[in-house]
Amino acid sequence: MFQKFKQKAPLLYFILSRIVTMIFLLFFLGFALFGLMELAPGDIVDQMMTQQLMASAQSGPNSSGATSGKENNFDEELLAKTREELGLDKPFYVQYFKWLKRVIVNHDLGVSLISRAPVSFLLKSRIMNTIVLNLISLVFITIFSFILGVYFSSKAGTRLDVGVTFFALFFHAFPGILLLILMQLAASITGLFPVTAYPDFPASAAPVKFTFSYIHHIFLPLFCSFLGGVGGTMRTIRATMLDQMGMPYIFALRARGISERRVYLNHAFRNTLNPYITGSANLLASLFGGSLIMEIIFAYPGVGRLTYEAVLQQDINLVLANSMFLSALVLAGMVISDILLAFVDPRIRYGADK
């Protein structure tokens, strides 16, 4: 049955197979995350105990003039009961399958072990911020990479091409975290841009003002993301264009008297889409990975910063939900890139018999 379906609809079979593969990858990723969190020293109950001890120490002696020893001596039975209530007394694989059952059957991501707020609510409040930021980065990197890559492929070997290639390599190899810190330091010294990446008032208060303020706040993080991503993508498109311009079909088109503009844009340019679409999934993954550092440095309220805070607090429900969301986005981007590649290049027939 599967073989007949594969022969009749190879592209649909490929899409469904990739979706199934993505589901299995997410399953094993969640299992690995639970295992890694189990290896971390201590747990969230220990952190609660530490925070309570610090609060008790800061409050000073009580009204009677002496602090009761019982207040600072945590009952082991109470700690064990707290772990049992949170489900932390079970092995990590039991916790994972209980969480997975709750997600699949009840469509419930659980509650944050620290704030006791629903994980879905915390995630929804940050999802759009992260998606919007990374999509804007992807669009700008794509547009400028194609424009610069195609243009400088026609200027190969010139001083301008050598200079731009040098700076593209420089910023591509420059550590992203250091670039973000330097940009934030420059913003602090000059005062031209905010040191945070998000306005200090909600969008509902003044939508138009919020839009312009948001653009002003995210300019520096976007600029850092652009500098880090455009170099490698531009060089890939430039190299592909140079490779295509040396192909026999290009000489044949020129011999037929077709203008150089049409040769570049109508023929050679179309063949640069394949390597870009293939690499766009990796670019998207690097953007989402880099946004974690950016959100921490620039105090941007996104999923990456929420994940970082959850890891520090060992809030396993929040860590797992955020990580699975980001991983699902990256895997979905890879599936979409493969589907687009099949539509762009008619020579590709996934699963079709040759």
Rank of each mutant, 00 (worst) to 15 (best):
K4P: 00
F5P: 02
F5T: 12
Y13R: 05
M22N: 02
L25V: 09
F27H: 03
F27K: 14
G30L: 08
G42Q: 09
D43N: 15
I44R: 12
D46I: 11
Q47P: 01
M54I: 14
P61G: 09
N62D: 13
G65Y: 15
N72Y: 14
N73P: 01
E76L: 07
A80C: 03
E84L: 02
D89S: 12
Y93K: 02
W99Y: 14
K101W: 06
V111S: 02
L113W: 15
I114Y: 07
S115R: 06
S115L: 04
V119E: 01
M128W: 07
M128D: 00
N129L: 01
S137D: 10
F140S: 05
T142E: 00
I143A: 07
F146I: 08
I147W: 10
R159M: 12
L160H: 05
L160S: 08
T165I: 03
F174C: 02
F174I: 04
I177A: 09
I177V: 11
L185T: 11
L185A: 15
A186S: 11
A186W: 13
I189G: 00
L192K: 11
P194Y: 10
D200H: 08
K209Q: 09
F210L: 05
F210I: 00
F210R: 10
S213L: 10
S213M: 13
I215Q: 01
F219R: 08
L227C: 08
M234D: 05
I237N: 03
L242S: 10
Q244P: 05
M245A: 01
G246V: 09
R262Y: 08
R270W: 07
P275E: 13
I277C: 06
L284T: 04
F288K: 01
G290A: 14
E295L: 15
F298V: 14
Y300C: 12
G304E: 02
R305M: 12
L312P: 02
L312V: 09
D315L: 08
S323P: 04
F325W: 09
G333H: 10
G333C: 08
L340K: 11
L340Y: 14
R349D: 15
G351N: 14
G351P: 07
A352V: 03
